[in-house]
Amino acid sequence: MPLWLDLTIRIVAVLAAFLVLPLIVGQAEHKVMAHMQGRLGPMYAGGFHGWAQLVADGVKFVQKEEVVPRGADRPVFQLVPAIALLPYLLVLLVIPLGPGDLVGQHLDIGLFFVLAVLSVPVMGVLMAAWSSANKYSLLGGVRGGAQLLGYELPFVLAAASVAMAAGTLSLPGIVEAWEPWWLLWQLPALLVFFIAGLAEIKRPPLDTPIADTELVFGYKTEYTGLRFAFLMLSEYVGIVVVAALTTVLFLGGWQGPFGLDDQLGWLWTLLKIAAVCFVIIWMRVTFPRLRVDQLQRLCWLVLVPVALGQLVLTAAVRLVVM
C-alpha cells in the first residue's frame, strides 16, 4: 500500500471515530439515564427508540442564531471550541484499537504525548471564562482552572505507575505487557486515574466548573448554536478518550478471553471502552455534585497520596519480580 493511501485511511478512520463514538455515547447517556430514573428518554426522533435524537439536536443547533455578547472579546470567544476539541482528536490518533497496525500512529512516547496534549484543554476553559464577559463564566473558569491543574497531578502519577510496571511509554507496548493480575496490583492506580479523568473532563459528580444549579452553565454560559454544540461534543469526546485510556492502560486493551486477540482485538477494545463509558454515565446519575472544597480535598488528600503509594508499590514489585 502506498504511503499516502495508508495515511489517508488512518486519518479518515480516526476522524470517523472522533465524530461517531461521541454521538453513540451521547445517545447512550440519554437512554441509560432515562431508564435509571424510570423514564423512557427520547422515543420519537428517527422512529426506533429515538435513535436519531442527537442528529435532530445537531440540526437544531445549526439553525440557532450565533450570539456573541457585546462586552466579549470576540476572537478569543470564537476560538474556544476549536481549542476544546483539537486535543482530544490528537489523542485519539495514538490509541491502539488492536494488535499490530490497528492504531492511528505508533509513537514511542505515546503515553507522554497523551498527557501533554490533555494538559491543553484547560487553556480553552480559561479563555472561554474570561472572554465571555460574564461573572458566572469567570467563576466557572476559575473553578475549572483550579480543578484541572490540581487533578492533573494524580492523573499523571497514576499513568506513570502503569508505565513503570510495563517498562515502556508506548501505548501498544503497555497493552502487550499487561497481564490479568495487574487488575489487582494496579487497582489503586486504576481508581485514581478514572476519578482524575472524570475531573479532567468535568463530568458529574466532579463538574463544579459547570455546576448548572450554581453557575447557570459555568464557562459555557454564553455559548449558543454551533459553538455550544461543539463544546458539548468535546465533553462527549472527552468521555470516549478517558474511557479509551483507562481501557488501554489498566484493562488490557485488546486482550480478550478466547485467545483470538489478533482477529477480535478491536472488538474487545471497543467493548471495554463501552463498559467504562457506561460507568461514567452511571456515576453521573448516582452521585451528587461535590462542593468546590470537597473536590480539592479529594484531590490533594486522597488521590495524590494513593497515587504516590501506588508508585512505591509498583517500584517495589518491579524490583522484586522482574
Binding site: F112, W130, G145, L149
Partner: peptide, 18 residues
Amino acid sequence: AWVQVLIYVGAVVVLLLF
C-alpha cells in the same frame, strides 16, 4: 517538544493567566 507543551503551555502559561 511534548515536554514543552506539557510544562509551558499546560502549566506555566495557564498559571500566569489564572
